Amino acid sequence: KYLVLALYDYQEKSPREVTMKKGDILTLLNSTNKDWWKVEVNGRQGFVPAAYVKYL
């Protein structure tokens, strides 16, 4: 498993997404889509914009 760092705040806009705050450390679950990565944060799984996170 990889960890990624939230570069920006992101507010979920659909039930498939998750909210994150700048500085959050997220567990990367799937990065096959170049635009949306599946992550786990605070016990929830969902998608965030790939451009908003970077590998640690």
Rank of each mutant, 00 (worst) to 15 (best):
L3F: 14
P49W: 03
P49G: 01
F47H: 05
V4T: 05
V39G: 00
G23F: 04
T19N: 07
E12A: 15
Y8G: 06
S31M: 14
S31H: 09
T19R: 05
K54H: 11
L29E: 03
Y52N: 08
E17C: 06
V53H: 00
V41H: 14
D9G: 06
Y55K: 14
R16V: 11
Y10N: 01
K54Y: 10
S31Y: 09
Y10T: 01
V41P: 00
G43R: 05
S31L: 07
N33S: 11
M20G: 00
Q11F: 14
N42E: 11
K21L: 08
K21R: 14
V48W: 01
Y8N: 10
N42F: 08
A50W: 02
P49I: 03
K34A: 13
L28R: 01
E40F: 06
Q45W: 07
K21Q: 10
A50L: 02
W36H: 03
T27Q: 11
Y8S: 10
L56N: 06
Q45P: 07
Y52M: 13
K54I: 15
E12P: 15
D24S: 07
G43Q: 07
E40V: 08
G23I: 01
V53Y: 01
G23A: 03
V4G: 11
T27R: 13
E40C: 09
L7K: 07
R44F: 07
V41C: 09
L29T: 05
A51W: 07
Y55E: 13
K13G: 08
T32D: 14
V41R: 14
L7G: 03
E12L: 07
N42L: 08
K38G: 06
L26M: 14
Y55A: 12
Y52P: 00
L56G: 05
V41M: 14
Y2S: 12
W37N: 02
K54W: 08
N30D: 15
K38I: 14
L7W: 04
V53I: 09
Q11P: 07
W36R: 03
A50K: 08
Y10F: 08
L29K: 05
K1M: 13
R44G: 04
K13E: 11
V48D: 00
Y10L: 01
R44A: 08
D24M: 11
V48I: 11
Y52I: 07
K21S: 10
K13T: 13
V18F: 13
M20S: 00
L56A: 10
N30W: 07
L5E: 15
I25R: 06
V4I: 09
K22P: 04
S14Y: 07
K38F: 15
T19Y: 04
V39S: 00
N33V: 05
P15V: 11
N33Q: 11
V53P: 00
T27H: 11
L26D: 00
D24K: 03
V41T: 11
K54M: 15
A51P: 09
D35Y: 15
K54G: 11
Q45I: 15
G43D: 10
T27L: 13
Y2L: 14
K22C: 06
Y55F: 15
G43T: 05
L5A: 06
P15M: 08
S14M: 07
E17W: 04
T27S: 09
P15C: 09
Y10M: 01
E12I: 06
L29W: 06
R16L: 15
E40A: 08
Q11S: 13
A51K: 15
K34P: 13
L28S: 02
Q11T: 15
Y52F: 14
E17H: 06
N30H: 08
V48P: 00
L7P: 00
D35N: 13
W36V: 03
Y52L: 13
K1D: 11
K22G: 07
G23P: 00
K34C: 08
K22Y: 04
K13I: 07
L5S: 06
G43N: 09
E12Y: 04
Y52S: 14
D35L: 13
L29F: 04
L56W: 12
K21A: 11
G46D: 01
R44C: 05
T32Q: 12
L26K: 00
I25P: 02
L28Y: 02
P15W: 08
Y55R: 14
A6Q: 01
T19M: 04
L28Q: 01
P49N: 02
G23D: 06
L26Y: 10
N30K: 07
E17P: 05
F47A: 03
N42M: 09
E40L: 09
K1Q: 13
R16P: 08
L5K: 09
T19W: 04
W36C: 06
V48H: 00
E17Q: 12
A51D: 12
K38E: 14
A50R: 11
I25C: 06
V39T: 01
W36A: 02
V53N: 00
L56V: 13
T19C: 06
N33C: 08
T19K: 04
N30G: 07
Y55P: 14
K54F: 10
E12G: 15
T27G: 06
Y55W: 12
E12T: 08
K54E: 15
A6H: 02
Y8F: 14
V53L: 15
Y55I: 15
D9P: 06
R16N: 15
Y10Q: 01
V39M: 02
K1Y: 13
Y2G: 15
L26I: 08
Y2Q: 14
I25M: 08
G46V: 03
S14P: 05
D35M: 12
Y52R: 06
N30L: 08
D9F: 02
L28D: 00
Y52K: 08
L7C: 07
D35A: 12
D24A: 07
I25A: 04
A6S: 06
K38Q: 13
P15I: 09
T32V: 12
E12F: 06
A51L: 12
W37G: 00
A50Y: 03
R16Q: 12
G43S: 07
T27C: 09
Q11E: 14
L28I: 06
T32I: 09
G46S: 02
D24N: 06
E17S: 06
E12V: 06
D9H: 05
N33E: 11
V39F: 00
V18H: 03
V53E: 00
Y8A: 14
K13H: 09
N42R: 10
R44H: 08
L5P: 01
Q45L: 09
L56Q: 07
K54D: 08
E12Q: 12
K22S: 08
D9T: 05
T27D: 05
G43E: 08
W37L: 07
L26S: 02
L29H: 06
L3A: 07
L28M: 05
Y2F: 13
Y8T: 11
Y10K: 01
L7N: 04
D35P: 03
L5V: 15
R16S: 15
L28A: 04
F47C: 09
K38T: 08
V53G: 01
L7D: 03
D24T: 07
V41Y: 12
W37R: 02
Q11C: 10
Y2H: 15
K34R: 11
G46H: 02
P49E: 01
S14H: 14
K13W: 03
K22A: 12
K21V: 10
D9C: 04
V4F: 07
D9L: 02
D24H: 05
L3D: 05
K38A: 11
W36Y: 09
V39N: 00
K13R: 14
R44T: 07
Y55T: 15
L56F: 12
L56S: 07
G23H: 05
Y55G: 09
M20R: 00
Q11I: 14
N42K: 10
A6T: 03
L56E: 07
A50E: 03
E17V: 05
R44N: 09
S14W: 06
P49M: 03
R44L: 08
Y2A: 14
G46W: 02
E17Y: 05
D24L: 04
S31C: 10
R44D: 05
P49C: 03
I25G: 01
L7M: 15
K54L: 13
A50T: 06
V4E: 00
K21D: 04
T32Y: 11
L5W: 08
P15Q: 10
G23Q: 03
K22R: 12
L56R: 05
V18P: 02
